[in-house]
């Protein structure tokens, strides 16, 4: 080995995986250049552009969101309301035939505290990302919980959606900007069973 890992001098490195640095690579002999500061990291963007079609059932869900409504669907003879619907009841194996409005009030079924924000629209960390069960639905939606300190968020907490202004709404899940707490008693874990 050479004179040791180069990473010891890398003050900019915030994550160090191993005591000897990430590699056991030796230092290299470089012919004299212009004294430019050594490159240690580079940004490598990777992007995929898709032509996305959600299909018939999610289209119904997204058109509902444009009207400020959360629409689930139920199969004939079934009791569970799926939201967003994929067009079938996965337990019964039958197509959904009935559109059912759920929420807007909802319950947090589980959550995590996000310390490293991701993407342009992420709120300042730390914030809470949660699975949220709209009243009347059998399954939860993903959502961000704001308007409360992250240390006070709990499973069973009651929330409601905060919508964009009607004029700004599109056929997008982003019409619900986030969820905020409402002054109602928590739902017990027993009642949430099977809806996680």
């Amino acid at each position: 080995m050479g004179s040791g890992p180069t990473f010891a001098q890398d003050a900019d490195r915030s994550v160090s995986a191993m005591p000897e640095g990430l590699w056991g690579q030796p230092e290299v002999n470089v012919p004299d250049g212009g004294g430019t500061e050594q490159v240690r990291r580079v940004t490598v963007p990777a992007t995929m552009v898709y032509d996305y079609t959600p299909g018939a059932a999610p289209t119904r869900f997204l058109r509902g969101l444009q009207e400020g409504r959360i629409l689930g669907e139920r199969a004939e003879g079934g009791t569970d309301v799926y939201v967003p619907s994929r067009g079938m009841d996965p337990v019964l194996g039958r197509a959904t035939t009935e559109s059912v409005e759920v929420g807007p009030k909802a319950t947090i079924t589980t959550f995590c505290v996000v310390h490293i924000g991701f993407g342009e629209n992420a709120p300042p960390p730390p914030f809470v990302s949660a699975l949220i069960l709209p009243d009347g639905a059998a399954v939860s939606l993903y959502g961000t919980v704001l308007g409360i300190d992250h240390t006070e968020v709990r499973i069973g907490m009651r929330v409601r959606p905060v919508w964009k202004d009607p004029a700004e709404r599109t056929t997008s899940f982003e019409n619900i900007t986030h969820w905020e707490p409402i002054d109602e008693p928590d739902v017990s874990a027993e009642e949430l069973k099977g809806h996680m």
């Binding site: 552009v49 898709y50 197509a95």
Partner: peptide
């Protein structure tokens, strides 16, 4: 029948991330 969805939606979807890569001594040089 399943409820009518009207015209099925379609939209461009871009998924991208600016990966930060450490170079190591050789590629760095």
């Amino acid at each position: 029948e399943s409820p009518d969805a009207g015209e099925i939606l379609r939209a461009p979807l871009t998924i991208g991330y600016d990966f930060q890569r450490t170079t190591g001594p050789v590629i760095g040089a």
